[in-house]
Amino acid sequence: VRQEELAAARAALHDLMTGKRVATVQKDGRRVEFTATSVSDLKKYIAELEVQTGM
């Protein structure tokens, strides 16, 4: 499950970095929206997932 969450989070980051205004991911069973202003929060979430998956 964590691998899927990590892939979704990375895709969301890619979307935001390429101009999409809002990206949505499932985080702990709930839907979370990230915007360009919350990229740093999304990067932290990705880092947490990488630690949890041993990457």
Rank of each mutant, 00 (worst) to 15 (best):
R31P: 15
V39Q: 05
V1T: 14
E48V: 08
Q26P: 07
E50L: 07
S38N: 15
V32P: 04
L13T: 00
L13V: 02
L42W: 01
A12T: 02
E33P: 03
A11M: 09
T53A: 14
E4D: 12
R21I: 14
D28C: 07
K43Q: 12
I46N: 00
V32L: 12
G54Y: 02
A9I: 04
Q26G: 06
E33V: 08
E4L: 12
Q52A: 12
T53R: 07
R21L: 15
Q26E: 13
E4M: 12
R21M: 14
A12F: 02
V51T: 13
A12N: 01
E48G: 05
V25Y: 00
V1C: 12
K20F: 04
A23P: 03
V22H: 08
L13F: 05
Q3Y: 14
A8P: 01
Y45L: 13
F34G: 03
V1Y: 10
D28H: 04
E48Y: 12
K43N: 06
E50F: 05
V25C: 07
E5L: 12
R30P: 03
E33A: 05
T24L: 07
K44L: 09
A9L: 10
A11T: 09
L42P: 00
T35Y: 11
L6V: 04
I46C: 02
A8V: 08
T35E: 08
M17T: 07
T53D: 11
Q26K: 09
A8T: 07
S40I: 10
R10H: 07
E33F: 05
A47D: 08
R31S: 14
R31G: 09
A23T: 10
E50V: 09
V32E: 08
T35H: 08
E4W: 13
K27Q: 10
G29S: 04
Q52E: 15
A47L: 12
A12W: 01
T18S: 13
T24S: 12
L16G: 00
A23Y: 00
A9R: 00
V22G: 05
S38I: 05
V39D: 02
T35F: 10
R2N: 12
R21Y: 05
I46K: 00
R21E: 14
L6K: 02
V39W: 04
G54H: 10
R30T: 11
Q52P: 06
K20E: 08
D41Q: 09
R10E: 04
L49R: 01
Q52D: 12
Q26D: 10
L6Q: 01
S40D: 15
V51G: 11
L6G: 01
T35S: 08
T18N: 14
R21F: 08
D15S: 07
M55P: 11
L16A: 02
A7F: 08
R10D: 02
E4C: 10
A36S: 12
E50S: 06
K27T: 07
R31H: 11
S40F: 03
V1L: 12
V32Q: 07
V51D: 12
A11R: 14
A47W: 10
A36Q: 14
R30F: 11
K43A: 08
G54F: 02
A36F: 10
A11H: 08
D15L: 09
F34W: 05
R10W: 04
R2D: 10
K20I: 10
M17K: 06
A8Q: 13
K27G: 04
M55K: 13
R10I: 12
A36G: 09
A11W: 02
G54C: 10
V25R: 02
L42D: 01
G29E: 04
G54D: 13
R21S: 14
L49N: 01
S40Y: 03
V22D: 04
T37E: 15
K43L: 14
R2I: 13
T53E: 13
L42H: 00
E48F: 12
V25H: 02
L42Q: 00
T24W: 05
L42S: 00
V25D: 03
D41Y: 05
R2V: 14
L6R: 01
V32T: 07
